[in-house]
Amino acid sequence: MMSINAAVIDLKRLELLADGNTPTHALDARAKVLVTFVFIVCVVSCSRYELTRLIPFFIFPTVLIALANLPALFVARKIALISPFVLMVGLFNPVFDHTDLYQIGHITITGGWISLISLFIRSLLTVGAAFILIGTTGFAAVCQALERLGIPRIFTVQLLFLHRYIFVLADETSRASRARELRSCGKKGFGVVSFSSLVGHLLLRTWHQAARIHTAMLARGFVGQFHARRQSRFGVVELCYLLSWSSLFIALRLFDITGTIGKVVTGIIP
């Protein structure tokens, strides 16, 4: 059960990163949310056979990790966690899509393989951007920014409770699984039968625990609104941040910069 505990501690560490004191951390959360949104839209809207256009988008996570002093290896490991799921989603692309796209010597690269790699890169970029947003802003501040951008409060509060519920569920799961493992004596411990009962218990226990936490929140004046500790306003710096990054992303999306550089280089060096 170490993996569940480790995953929870990592999630909490990601939240703690948002307490940094860099200029990126100090920016108004709305600017960071909007920039991340434009980034994700630009990346996702690239066609499935685009590879070269996606590569320059790596500038965004790279620059932000450096500016915000985020631990690059930690963020990379978090992003790598989702890769098996992405590969599973795109697993059948090479099987069903036989469109010939490139020829390298005698080897033909089909559209299926290109779309699989494209899907993989796009997921790295978008999930990475989301992790960096949380690591530089914090989940509560992101939800507050969404609310200030016009998303109904009921959705943002739901998001926040879901976020808290993940920790409650993970804590209970690790405890229950440890108890089951210790009494299974290295065997399967009645397999699916005990597992299904454990899942049922988990649901009820986390339900009660969540209710107790909610009561504790109510006792401390919670009225359906989370407050971010860092107070900020959308000023000139935020506007420049939003416009500069957004213009870059739109330019990268509209113009094939890597292709153009490639043509220039191959033109100079025939």
Binding site: L16, D171, R212, I213, A216, M217, R220, G221
Partner: peptide
């Protein structure tokens, strides 16, 4: 509350103690 784990739910101790005053 009896179980402090029910009462402490924010990322840091400071955030947790600040939760009430912010509300």
């Amino acid at each position: 509350f009896q179980n402090p784990d029910d009462q402490l739910f924010m990322p840091t101790v400071f955030d947790d103690v600040a939760f009430g005053p912010l509300n």
